[in-house]
Amino acid sequence: MVIGIISLSCKKFLCNIRPLSVGERATAERVDVMLIASNYSVNLSDLALGSDLPPSPFSLAQKIVIAFFASVLSVLTVVGNSMVMISFKIDKQLQTISNYFLFSLAVADFAVGLISMPLYTMFTIYGYWPLGPHICDTWLALDYLASNASVLNLLIISFDRYFSVTRPLTYRAKRTTRRATVMIGGAWGFSLILWPPWIYAWPYIDGERKVPERECYIQFIETNQFITFGTAIAAFYVPVTVMCFLYYKIWRETKKRQKDLPNLQGGKKHDSSKRSNSR
């Protein structure tokens, strides 16, 4: 009897089952899609909440102050160097050999103000790097390229002034636009060889990227002390030492000429008095 009742109940249940219509099937599919999207958004929110972002070392007020002053410096750098480049291009009288070096220096400083300073300010305020490894390497490559080119352009200017003061006759004859262009190209070429290729290639040389995801620095600075030491000497210490030496020599030459100037003026007065007496 019990088996009969169960059999009858199952038959009634099976009889009530019917295939879904087109509208009901579409409604069910929409519900399934909504459930999948809801689960996906929940998973993303869980990942976001669970991500271990380092805290910023600055308070809100400090962030505002840093952002304000950094923005002012960046804008002044970009606008000032833009005015130098525009003036050089517009006014033909400014296109002298010395100003070619200043134009190259303005280009390097313009890149620093436009690219390097804003991204470094963001990195400082956040306390971590939020833009990923590819933009990190590109920023580092442009930053070190422009900064090193700026230092080398200053070095070229110091050489130009040194030879102009110490060898005014012979150097002026050799001081051509072509030679100035070659010197400027050498400064940019050396900077291009020294930094960007190694910044991009070093993770492959090491076999892996050892810079953490939320950090941004040159990998070989942390993993190879010899290369760090060599690039620091070639990019900064040698140019600065040579510049200091050249400007010291320029100062010595200028002081020497200032001491010789009264004697030269006295000799000219003596010769003029002799001529007047002979007449």
Results as ranks from 00 to 15, higher is better:
79 V>K: 05
79 V>P: 06
79 V>M: 05
79 V>H: 04
79 V>G: 01
81 N>C: 10
81 N>G: 12
83 M>D: 03
83 M>I: 10
83 M>S: 09
85 M>H: 07
85 M>Q: 04
86 I>N: 06
86 I>M: 08
86 I>A: 04
87 S>L: 08
87 S>V: 06
87 S>T: 14
87 S>M: 06
89 K>H: 07
89 K>S: 10
90 I>K: 12
90 I>N: 06
90 I>T: 12
90 I>A: 07
91 D>W: 10
91 D>Y: 11
91 D>F: 13
92 K>N: 08
92 K>G: 01
92 K>L: 03
93 Q>C: 07
93 Q>Y: 09
93 Q>I: 03
94 L>H: 06
95 Q>N: 08
95 Q>E: 06
96 T>Y: 07
97 I>N: 12
97 I>M: 04
97 I>V: 15
98 S>Y: 06
99 N>E: 09
99 N>L: 08
99 N>S: 09
100 Y>K: 09
100 Y>N: 15
100 Y>W: 10
101 F>L: 07
101 F>R: 00
101 F>Y: 15
102 L>P: 03
103 F>P: 03
103 F>A: 11
104 S>N: 15
104 S>Y: 08
104 S>C: 14
104 S>A: 14
105 L>F: 13
106 A>D: 10
107 V>Q: 11
107 V>M: 13
107 V>D: 09
108 A>V: 05
109 D>F: 13
109 D>W: 14
109 D>I: 09
110 F>E: 00
110 F>V: 08
110 F>I: 10
110 F>D: 06
111 A>Q: 12
111 A>G: 15
111 A>W: 11
111 A>N: 13
111 A>E: 14
112 V>A: 03
113 G>C: 11
113 G>D: 02
114 L>C: 05
114 L>W: 03
114 L>R: 09
114 L>V: 11
114 L>K: 03
115 I>L: 13
115 I>F: 14
116 S>T: 12
118 P>E: 14
118 P>W: 12
118 P>K: 05
118 P>H: 15
119 L>S: 09
120 Y>V: 07
120 Y>H: 07
